[in-house]
Simulated scan of single mutants.
Amino acid sequence: MSKQKSSVPQPAEPEETKAPSNGIFVFRFDPSKRGAALKVFIAGVLALSLFSVVINSYVQLNEVYSEISSANAELNILRSENVRMQTELEGKASISNIKEYAEQHLGLQKLDKSQIQYIEIQTEDEVVLEEEEQNIFVQIKHKFEDIVAYLRG
Protein backbone atom coordinates (compact mmCIF):
# COMPACT_ATOMS: atom_id res chain seq x y z
CA MET A 1 0.00 0.00 0.00
CA SER A 2 1.20 3.37 -0.91
CA LYS A 3 0.94 6.40 1.27
CA GLN A 4 -1.54 8.94 0.03
CA LYS A 5 -1.69 12.51 1.16
CA SER A 6 -4.94 13.35 2.87
CA SER A 7 -6.78 16.56 2.09
CA VAL A 8 -7.52 17.19 5.77
CA PRO A 9 -4.93 19.53 7.19
CA GLN A 10 -3.02 18.18 10.11
CA PRO A 11 -2.45 20.46 13.07
CA ALA A 12 0.91 22.07 12.94
CA GLU A 13 3.31 20.85 15.48
CA PRO A 14 4.74 23.54 17.64
CA GLU A 15 8.21 24.54 16.70
CA GLU A 16 10.70 25.35 19.30
CA THR A 17 11.68 28.96 19.41
CA LYS A 18 15.20 29.60 20.38
CA ALA A 19 16.40 32.96 21.53
CA PRO A 20 19.10 34.19 19.20
CA SER A 21 22.30 35.29 20.69
CA ASN A 22 21.98 38.87 19.37
CA GLY A 23 18.90 39.65 21.58
CA ILE A 24 16.22 39.62 18.84
CA PHE A 25 13.27 37.39 19.48
CA VAL A 26 11.62 35.62 16.62
CA PHE A 27 7.90 34.99 16.91
CA ARG A 28 6.46 32.27 14.84
CA PHE A 29 2.84 32.42 13.74
CA ASP A 30 0.68 29.75 15.25
CA PRO A 31 -2.10 28.81 12.78
CA SER A 32 -4.41 27.71 15.59
CA LYS A 33 -4.54 31.30 16.90
CA ARG A 34 -5.53 32.77 13.52
CA GLY A 35 -9.28 32.60 14.32
CA ALA A 36 -8.77 34.26 17.70
CA ALA A 37 -6.93 37.21 16.18
CA LEU A 38 -9.66 37.61 13.57
CA LYS A 39 -12.33 37.55 16.29
CA VAL A 40 -10.47 40.20 18.30
CA PHE A 41 -10.13 42.37 15.18
CA ILE A 42 -13.85 42.06 14.34
CA ALA A 43 -14.83 42.77 17.96
CA GLY A 44 -12.58 45.84 17.92
CA VAL A 45 -14.13 47.11 14.67
CA LEU A 46 -17.65 46.54 16.04
CA ALA A 47 -16.78 48.31 19.31
CA LEU A 48 -15.29 51.25 17.39
CA SER A 49 -18.33 51.51 15.11
CA LEU A 50 -20.70 51.32 18.10
CA PHE A 51 -18.68 54.03 19.84
CA SER A 52 -18.86 56.26 16.75
CA VAL A 53 -22.64 55.74 16.50
CA VAL A 54 -23.09 56.75 20.15
CA ILE A 55 -20.91 59.84 19.69
CA ASN A 56 -22.84 60.77 16.54
CA SER A 57 -26.16 60.46 18.37
CA TYR A 58 -24.90 62.74 21.15
CA VAL A 59 -23.79 65.29 18.55
CA GLN A 60 -27.21 65.23 16.89
CA LEU A 61 -28.93 65.50 20.28
CA ASN A 62 -26.78 68.51 21.11
CA GLU A 63 -27.73 70.15 17.79
CA VAL A 64 -31.44 69.61 18.49
CA TYR A 65 -31.07 71.11 21.98
CA SER A 66 -29.29 74.11 20.45
CA GLU A 67 -32.13 74.60 17.95
CA ILE A 68 -34.72 74.37 20.74
CA SER A 69 -32.80 76.90 22.79
CA SER A 70 -32.57 79.37 19.91
CA ALA A 71 -36.28 78.90 19.11
CA ASN A 72 -37.18 79.57 22.77
CA ALA A 73 -35.02 82.71 22.75
CA GLU A 74 -36.79 83.92 19.60
CA LEU A 75 -40.17 83.12 21.18
CA ASN A 76 -39.29 85.22 24.23
CA ILE A 77 -38.23 88.11 22.00
CA LEU A 78 -41.50 87.92 20.03
CA ARG A 79 -43.57 87.79 23.23
CA SER A 80 -41.87 90.89 24.60
CA GLU A 81 -42.42 92.64 21.25
CA ASN A 82 -46.10 91.68 21.44
CA VAL A 83 -46.41 93.17 24.92
CA ARG A 84 -44.72 96.38 23.72
CA MET A 85 -47.04 96.67 20.72
CA GLN A 86 -50.15 95.99 22.85
CA THR A 87 -49.08 98.75 25.25
CA GLU A 88 -48.50 101.12 22.35
CA LEU A 89 -51.93 100.28 20.90
CA GLU A 90 -53.64 100.88 24.23
CA GLY A 91 -51.84 104.22 24.51
CA LYS A 92 -53.04 105.31 21.08
CA ALA A 93 -56.63 104.26 21.83
CA SER A 94 -56.86 106.22 25.08
CA ILE A 95 -59.65 108.78 25.59
CA SER A 96 -57.28 111.73 25.65
CA ASN A 97 -55.70 110.74 22.32
CA ILE A 98 -59.12 110.25 20.72
CA LYS A 99 -60.28 113.64 22.03
CA GLU A 100 -57.13 115.33 20.74
CA TYR A 101 -57.51 113.71 17.30
CA ALA A 102 -61.18 114.74 17.09
CA GLU A 103 -60.41 118.35 17.97
CA GLN A 104 -57.30 118.79 15.80
CA HIS A 105 -57.98 116.68 12.71
CA LEU A 106 -61.77 116.52 12.55
CA GLY A 107 -62.54 120.02 13.87
CA LEU A 108 -64.96 118.74 16.53
CA GLN A 109 -65.56 120.58 19.79
CA LYS A 110 -66.94 119.64 23.17
CA LEU A 111 -70.64 120.44 23.68
CA ASP A 112 -71.69 123.51 25.64
CA LYS A 113 -74.74 123.56 27.84
CA SER A 114 -76.37 125.92 25.36
CA GLN A 115 -76.17 123.27 22.63
CA ILE A 116 -78.07 120.64 24.60
CA GLN A 117 -81.78 120.31 23.79
CA TYR A 118 -84.12 118.17 25.85
CA ILE A 119 -87.03 116.27 24.31
CA GLU A 120 -90.01 114.97 26.21
CA ILE A 121 -91.14 111.50 25.29
CA GLN A 122 -94.34 109.87 26.42
CA THR A 123 -93.41 106.63 28.09
CA GLU A 124 -96.56 104.59 28.03
CA ASP A 125 -96.23 100.83 28.13
CA GLU A 126 -98.92 100.21 25.57
CA VAL A 127 -98.87 100.99 21.89
CA VAL A 128 -102.23 101.01 20.13
CA LEU A 129 -102.40 100.52 16.41
CA GLU A 130 -105.61 101.38 14.70
CA GLU A 131 -106.96 98.72 12.47
CA GLU A 132 -107.61 99.56 8.89
CA GLU A 133 -111.26 99.58 7.90
CA GLN A 134 -112.05 96.48 5.94
CA ASN A 135 -115.03 95.95 3.74
CA ILE A 136 -117.52 93.21 4.48
CA PHE A 137 -116.06 90.72 2.00
CA VAL A 138 -112.57 90.87 3.54
CA GLN A 139 -114.03 90.39 7.03
CA ILE A 140 -116.00 87.34 5.84
CA LYS A 141 -112.88 85.92 4.25
CA HIS A 142 -110.90 86.30 7.51
CA LYS A 143 -113.67 84.69 9.55
CA PHE A 144 -113.78 81.78 7.10
CA GLU A 145 -109.95 81.33 7.35
CA ASP A 146 -110.21 81.38 11.16
CA ILE A 147 -112.92 78.64 11.10
CA VAL A 148 -110.86 76.45 8.72
CA ALA A 149 -107.75 76.84 10.90
CA TYR A 150 -109.79 75.88 13.99
CA LEU A 151 -111.17 72.77 12.29
CA ARG A 152 -107.73 71.62 11.11
CA GLY A 153 -106.45 71.86 14.66
Rank of each mutant, 00 (worst) to 15 (best):
K3R: 07
R28V: 04
I42R: 11
F51V: 01
E145H: 06
E81H: 07
S21P: 06
N76W: 03
D30L: 12
E130L: 06
S49K: 08
D112V: 02
S57Q: 12
N97L: 12
F25D: 12
N76L: 05
I140Y: 13
M1I: 06
R152C: 00
R84N: 07
N82S: 13
G107K: 01
L89V: 12
I42V: 13
E13P: 10
F25Y: 12
I98W: 02
N135A: 01
K110E: 07
A102D: 01
R34H: 04
S96G: 04
R79I: 08
S21W: 09
V128H: 12
E16S: 14
N82Q: 13
M1K: 06
I119C: 03
R79F: 01
N76C: 01
V54G: 06
E103S: 06
S70D: 02
V45L: 12
A47T: 07
S94P: 07
P9H: 11
E133P: 04
L108N: 00
E90P: 02
K5Q: 10
V83M: 05
G153F: 00
L46W: 03
D125T: 06
F41Y: 12
I98P: 00
G35L: 09
A43G: 05
L89T: 10
N56K: 14
V40R: 15
S2M: 11
V53E: 02
N62Q: 09
A19M: 13
R84T: 07
F29S: 05
Q4A: 12
Y118H: 09
V148W: 02
S21V: 12
I98T: 05
L75I: 05
Y150W: 03
N72K: 13
S70E: 03
R28W: 02
K99H: 02
Q10N: 06
K92M: 15
L38V: 08
R152W: 00
L151S: 02
I147K: 14
I95Y: 13
S2P: 07
E88F: 12
K110R: 11
E13S: 14
V128E: 04
E100V: 02
T87A: 15
D125G: 13
R79T: 10
S57F: 06
S21T: 05
Q115G: 08
E130G: 08
Q109M: 05
I95Q: 11
S69Y: 09
V8D: 02
N22K: 10
G23M: 03
V54Y: 07
A102S: 03
N72Y: 09
Q139K: 15
V45D: 05
K18N: 08
S66T: 06
A93S: 15
L38K: 12
A12P: 03
G23K: 09
S70A: 11
L50G: 13
V26K: 15
N22P: 00
L78E: 04
A93D: 08
P14G: 11
I55M: 09
A12E: 14
K33N: 05
L151H: 03
D146E: 07
L108K: 05
Q134G: 00
N62W: 10
Q122E: 06
L48G: 11
N135F: 00
F27L: 09
Q10M: 05
L78M: 09
K141Q: 09
S96F: 11
K18L: 14
S52H: 04
Y118M: 03
V45F: 04
Q60G: 10
